[in-house]
Nucleic acid binder design. Structure first.
Lengths: 133, 133
DNA sequence: TTACTTACTTCCATATGGTAAGTTACAATT
DNA sequence: AATTGTAACTTACCATATGGAAGTAAGTAA
């Protein structure tokens, strides 16, 4: 009887696939700001995402909407208001963000924390690391 | 008594910091091939990483060595042999890779799996998702 | 002497990203 | 009536990053 390896059942690599979705500049920053700071608007993100610029932010938001990570809602007020919100799929990237945070908190505590000491995720965020299974 | 928020204790964002380390093209692919396929050599990776090219692969390996994710060992044989191996720090990215895999397995089963059906991480990899806390 | 191997580097073209300024559609202010 | 303000972008132009093909170095084998 032959053994079934992961490679045998896969058409493409899920890690490569995820990288194509979230690997471009600002994508994870956008998700972070929406998930952790409740941001919904273009200029909020532009002002708070490290080294962001309107051209690239605009491109990323479009790609993310197309990929189904966020939804774009237009409110016809004056001035116009547009709200971006995470979809269920976008929210499912929380575990990935948590692992990104955890890695730097463990290996770069000098750069990350003002006191330069190690702190674990739960201590800092008051909730356990999210895991998607 | 004032409440301590994550922002208050941080000097820089750990998600941004991690993205700077693993966000460039091929970095996660290199770690994946080393961790999951036991690869150690330049040409092995060049042949198996999707759309890789020697110039960018070479640049990435140097950056990763500098960042302490991998170690480079030269064996003075003929022809010369060079081995790249994950450091402890590099191995600590496993939880992140697992979350990347899990996300696509959940949301892109049609693209990822030959049978187009959903499968969970443990089923496919015969071990639970790794989590760094 | 030519060919082969590994692990790259170099050159040049294309793709992506960044800066600053401009645009649209109103409404409020002067 | 003309100017100012606001949000959310877009455009033009330049800089940097990435990709593909070919070349290099050092040694063994044919």
């Amino acid at each position: 009887m032959t053994q079934q390896t992961p490679m045998d059942m896969m058409k493409c690599c899920p890690i490569d696939n995820t990288f194509k979705i979230i690997g471009k500049k600002f994508t994870v920053h956008i998700i972070r700001n929406m998930a952790m700071h409740g941001q919904t608007r273009f200029n909020q993100m532009l002002d708070s995402i490290e080294d962001s610029n309107p051209k690239t932010l605009s491109a990323r938001l479009k790609e993310m909407e197309k990929a189904g990570l966020i939804a774009r809602n237009v409110y016809d007020e004056t001035p116009i208001r547009i709200e971006y919100k995470l979809t269920k799929k976008g929210k499912d990237l929380q575990g990935l963000l948590d692992q990104m945070a955890t890695f730097s908190m463990k290996h770069y505590s000098k750069e990350v924390f003002k006191d330069g000491k190690q702190h674990n995720y739960k201590q800092v965020f008051k909730k356990p690391v999210t895991v998607l299974n």
